[in-house]
């Protein structure tokens, strides 16, 4: 069976990465911004796994890195959601446009 070449996987992950960046800058809802960050982190995971499988199949470093990224991302998102819930309860908004009490 013919394998998918590495470049295809890398193009996929780069597209995901920049989609995530675009989403992070263009969305105004905090939850959606968090989802964009997840997209970025997942593109990185794809990168690691692809490099590991195609270039360095005799070791598992990329896979381990991916496991750690997933775990840390979960911690990060849970804290972000805790802060968002606090904002929502106290001020009834999760739109970044409304978090503008401080300006230069």
């Amino acid at each position: 069976m013919e394998q998918v070449p590495l470049s295809h996987v890398l193009i996929l992950s780069s597209c995901l990465f920049f989609l995530g960046i675009y989403g992070f800058f263009s969305r105004r809802n905090m939850i959606t911004m968090l989802m964009s960050i997840e997209l970025i982190l997942n593109s990185i995971n794809i990168n690691f796994i692809a490099f590991n499988k195609y270039l360095y199949p005799h070791q598992l470093e990329g896979v381990f890195f991916t496991l750690f990224i997933i775990t840390v991302a979960a911690a990060e998102v849970s804290l972000a959601i805790a802060i968002i819930i606090n904002l929502y309860r106290k001020f009834n908004t999760i739109d970044v446009e409304d978090t503008n009490t401080m300006k230069f």
């Binding site: 990465f17 968090l34 970025i40 593109s43 690691f48 990060e76 978090t99």
Partner: peptide
Amino acid sequence: KNSSEAGIKLILSSAFSTGILLFGISLLY
């Protein structure tokens, strides 16, 4: 409200910057 804003801004921007850093690391790998 100031404080919550600071929190959300810090966590969002630090998560984003970590994403950028990690993408670089994955390419380095």
